[in-house]
Design a protein around this nucleic acid. Structure first.
Lengths: 350, 350
DNA sequence: CTGTTAGCGCATTCAA
DNA sequence: TTGAATGCGCTAACAG
């Protein structure tokens, strides 16, 4: 082309600064500049210096898309959560993003609203954007979503539960065991009727697992969970209040409730207070998550601490390792802790 | 090259399915396939049908990077928040992401931890990833960050406050006026000593504005905020508790406190309860945000509702409009509402 | 309305 | 170690 119409001192100033501009200024070939960017050690020291100098003065910024096209790597990863406007997934997203940023990955995020179809849409869009890897919550989803991911051949992790029989790599904890443990504790306190205030179970395998755990515990006692002691509503304080009203108006109300998530428990506690139901005097309340509020409200909430941040971080680490070629061992189950505080106690004497 | 070594029925199956594969199968030119994707109306109906059919059977997914390289548009936008693990910014991020997804944009997110340097890093990385537009919180930042954005010539919005004298487009509300209004209300109740429990002010112009608003209100009364009635700590319940202890141990403690954010107020309320300080009997507590908890705890919190979701949504709309060529009018200030509940009242008689 | 021709900016062969 | 050539997959003129 135009053999340096502009004398190699400055770029045409129309359009962005390209690698080629840098090459001109540094008086090396484009290939060398590329090497400086990707494998600096493979370049002569003073050339490298000249290139870096040129990059500096030109304010050169590599063009991600061009890079991705040529190298087949975008250094972008995706993450789809059921929701991102709450502390629970927020903590995970935050940790995920941090860990990825430290490894020089950029993260694309979206929320599915617990809807498999929306999730699929987001996955499709992300795949199209060229993500190198993907994080999803739970195992249950539209089968086509897995197919899409498979067709692109990118690594992925599922989080927030264990892999079970499945073949999908999973970073998470045993919701079922945790729920059983919590319920066992309630039985050990002397409760006989333990209700469940659950989130919507459909498409939410974590919630399903937790319910199963409660049932396991019931089974150990040779009992079964009464149908009218299980209520299901979307996560939210208001719903927690509503569910408490419903469950306490049964002919034989429970003396304890296990809540599928903390907002539900707060709702239950607030509503109980409004009805002069003493917690834990008349009713024990327990939940999952241990978010910032659990240890602050009164009564302080007995809850299962779930490793929210760890999940985000470990999931990111797993993907980073996979992307860098080392096949990491399958992630090991994360720990949960039953944190006993003030909202649970012995059942009322009657 | 190789003139259909494979008879146009199936792609080589090595490597991904490309637009060209689709073109072969549909017996049209690549350009036509491209048109089907981008401006379907400009293509003959039955050709379009053939192409869509081919896309379907081949499972073709466009290659974002290639597309971005050729069209100079990535359909990705960036958003950097000070934090993403809380309800406040989570709600904004959620709305932003939703609105963007509806317009077929993908969003890259990162959190800066209220650190301008981290923010700059994230912006740099995002720019490199090829974002078409960018959302940032507040106006105060490393000058170089603005330069970077300027050099790339992409549109951006700042959120969570007004533009002020600045030239940067802003979607937000008037923190200062809102804080003044809130403080005015407290004065109108008869308070004379109103303390401030603020977040860290450095690099946080929203917090600075709120403090300025409180000072404005003081000025209207011909008074000034006492130095020992202003405390500054990171956002958090624990910090709220600590600040309450500090401020109430002054020789002349305030009879009301304005908290820069809700977690601080919760901390203050919890700690007050622990010290048998009645709210609002002995001390009025007010704050900003009106998150889900404000109307639920007891006493219910008097707070300024801030338009968190609206901000995310409006910011997204503004960027979408700009990207689609129409120069939208500068966003108008969003409304805040003072929501008077139970945590504020007349000062104690003494 | 459709096909042909050129790149977009970079990484990566391959020779040297 | 370095440079020259080639193509990643797609869109955007340009002709027809």
């Amino acid at each position: 082309m135009g053999i340096d119409l502009e004398s190699a001192s400055k770029s045409p100033s129309l359009g962005r600064v390209t690698l080629e501009d840098v090459a001109h200024l540094a008086k090396v070939s484009p290939a060398t500049v590329s090497r400086c960017l990707n494998r600096p050690d493979s370049v002569n020291l003073d050339k490298r210096a000249r290139v870096n100098q040129a990059i500096q003065t030109l304010g050169y910024v590599p063009h991600g898309a061009a890079r991705a096209l040529a190298s087949k790597q975008s250094r972008m990863v995706g993450a789809v959560f059921p929701a991102i406007d709450n502390t629970l997934f927020g903590a995970s997203l935050d940790a995920f993003q941090r860990t990825m940023a430290d490894a020089d990955y950029t993260v694309i995020v979206a929320s599915s609203d617990y809807d498999p179809l929306r999730e699929k849409q987001h996955v499709r869009r992300m795949l199209q954007s060229g993500i190198d890897a993907l994080m999803l919550v739970g195992l249950v989803r539209d089968e086509e979503t897995y197919e899409l991911i498979g067709a692109h051949g990118i690594p992925y992790v599922t989080v927030w539960r264990l892999a079970g029989q499945q073949v999908h790599p999973a970073v998470g904890f045993d919701n079922r065991a945790a729920a059983q443990h919590l319920t066992d504790y309630l039985f050990s306190l002397g409760h006989e009727r333990i209700g469940v205030l659950s989130g919507i179970l459909e498409y939410n395998d974590r919630a399903q697992d937790r319910l199963a755990g409660v049932r396991d515990s019931y089974a150990k006692q040779g009992r079964t969970l009464a149908d009218n002691h299980l209520i299901e509503r979307p996560f939210g304080v208001e719903q927690g209040r509503e569910m408490l009203r419903l469950i306490m108006s049964q002919e034989t109300p429970p003396t304890a409730v296990v809540c599928g998530a903390e907002p539900l428990a707060y709702g239950a506690i607030f509503e109980a207070a409004a009805h002069n139901i003493s917690v834990p005097g008349d009713l024990s309340v327990a939940a999952f998550d241990d978010t910032w509020l659990a240890g602050q409200i009164s009564p302080k909430l007995t809850t299962v601490r779930t490793p929210n941040m760890e999940i985000g971080e470990e999931a990111a680490k797993y993907l980073i390792a996979t992307l860098s070629g080392v096949q990491p061992p399958l992630p090991r189950p994360l720990e949960t802790d039953l944190i006993i505080r003030e909202s649970t106690g012995r059942p009322p004497a009657g």
